[in-house]
Structure formats: structure tokens, C-alpha cells
Amino acid sequence: MKALYSFLAVIVLILIATLGVNVANMSSVFGIIVPYLAFVVFVGGFVYRVIKWGKSPVPFRIPTTCGQQKSLPWIKQSKIENPTSALGVIVRMALEILFFRSLFRNTKTELKEGPYGPQLAYGSAKWLWFGSLVFHWSFLIIVIRHLRLFIEPVPFFVQMLDGLDGMLQIGLPPIYLTDLFFVVAVTFLFLRRILIPRVKYISLPADYFPLFMIFSIAVSGILMRYFYKVDIIAIKEFAIGLAQFHPVIPQGIGVIFYVHIFLVSVLFAYFPLSKLMHMGGIFLSPTRNMISNNRMVRHINPWNPVLEVHTYEHYEDEFREKMKKVGLPVEKE
């Protein structure tokens, strides 16, 4: 049901773009105004949310239990899992961001029938990690590849990536490996949500919606490349026009291009409002991005109130005469 709502929402968006361009003739709205708005909302919203997060007090260092903390000299410290140096933290964050180290530790828990009744069993579960890794890396490569439509001349690294991606040279235009991986990975991430009852139970429309959006964007892009050929030269002129703030709507471009660009715009505008912000949030993971030096360095609780300190010296200065009168000993005469 929740999946159905999200699915219908995406269908409605596709219909809006189709009808808007085909019937209402609003190609400049969908081609120019919506992408600009989406870009502003994306950048503004992203920066706003990260700054808002940055304003929360940083908690006390959380040494994670997945690595031996620095201790006695004859106990080997796990320098990456429980780092005491900035370099260790950088390596730990890089592993987290590039290779999803935490997700790699994902385990499954099952009740199994043992000889003496049900037994709790733990096992490694790497499929989610692998699926997400394929998904995210394909997505990144696809985004970088799209630079060839936005900049002229096309830099060498974009061409190289493009060449690597199509290196199998299957068909013409060559099939991009990331296109295949991407669609398979999105499908896997979706099926996982509807086929595993526990995951289905906790899945919300906000979990399905991005999956459907991304899937539709991928499909519309694939259709444009391999099936309904669009005029790539006109599209590149249009994209560069957008980047130069002199957009000119290309003539004779099929509606599928507008569907693609509209879905991308909606996804970008939706980005800062949604769970997709994990892109920025992962950098602020408190258990991952702090040096585990609780006992090596003094950390002051950031929300401690500023208190006036009244030392004994001051106290004695204030009450010295009275103390002498009643015969209390004083340190200074």
C-alpha cells in the first residue's frame, strides 16, 4: 500500500510532465524554470540542513566497540576502527563513505531449530552492502558521465570514464555497464523492501518514493539513449545554455526528455527534505568522525553553563577578618 502511493506519485509526476509539454505546450516551464528552481532548492536546502546540523552540540567522543581502544602498550590498538589520530579518522571515514564499512558489518539474526529447541543464530549478510555499493557507485559514475552534456570541451577524465563504462562495446550506441548495474541494483533494493516481511513492515512511502523516482529516471534515460533517439547535439546546446544562464528550448525534442529532466528536478528538489540527505549526513556521523581520545585530551561539555568560580583564596580574602574574629585558622595573615 505504501509502495503503491509512492508509485502513483511518480506516475502522476510523469503525467504532469507529459501533459504539460504535449498538451499545455509549457516546455519552457519544464525545461527551464523547473530545473533552475530545483537547483536552487537543492543547493539552498542542502546547505541549510547541514548548517542546522552543525549547530547541534557535538557529543562526547563515542569509542566504538568494533576495535580495540588504545590502552596498555602491550595491547594492540585497532588504529582504524578506534583511531587516536586524525589520519586514522580520515581512513575510517573514507572507508565508511567509499565502501560503506558499517553496512559491511550487517548481520542477520535468525531463530533456528536446534537439538534442544529453537536456537538464536547470527550470520553474515552482505547482499545489502553489495547492492548499495553497486547502486551508489553506478549513480556516481552516471552523474559524472552526464558532464559530457554540460561542458564543452569535454575533459579527459569524463571521456575516460565514458570509455570505461562502455568498454564491452555491446551494441551501438555501446551499452553502459553502469546502466545495467544501476537498474539491477535499484530493483534489488526495491524487491528487498517488499519481499522481506521485517523490512516491508518498517518501510515508509518515503523509502519507496526515491526508489521509484530513481528507477523512472534511469529508465527514461535508457530509453532516450537506446530506443527513442533524441537529438544529442540539441540537448547539449540546451544544457550548456542552462549552465550559461541563456537557455534556449531545443526544437523537436521528444517528450521523454522533458519527463527525464522533470523527474530529475523533482528528485533534486526533494533531496534536502528527505532521507536522501544521508549524502551530507554521513560526514557528520558522530561514532565515525571523532578521534577516540576521551581520556587523552580534556573534553569540555559544550552546553556546560558558564559558572563563576569562587576559589578558597577568594573566599578567605572576603571573610578573613570575620574568620579571625571567631578564631578560625586562615592561610594568609
Binding site: L147, I151, G280
Partner: peptide, 19 residues
């Protein structure tokens, strides 16, 4: 991050969009 996002804007800055 914003510099990455606006890379095409600066890369194309002042160039003609001649096709």
C-alpha cells in the same frame, strides 16, 4: 560541495554556446 555542483557554470563561463 557547491563548487562541484556549479562546476559546469564556471567551466562554461564566457564561452560561446555555438554547438
Amino acid at each position: 560541495f557547491v563548487a562541484f555542483l556549479t562546476f559546469p557554470i564556471f567551466y562554461n563561463l564566457g564561452k560561446a554556446n555555438a554547438g
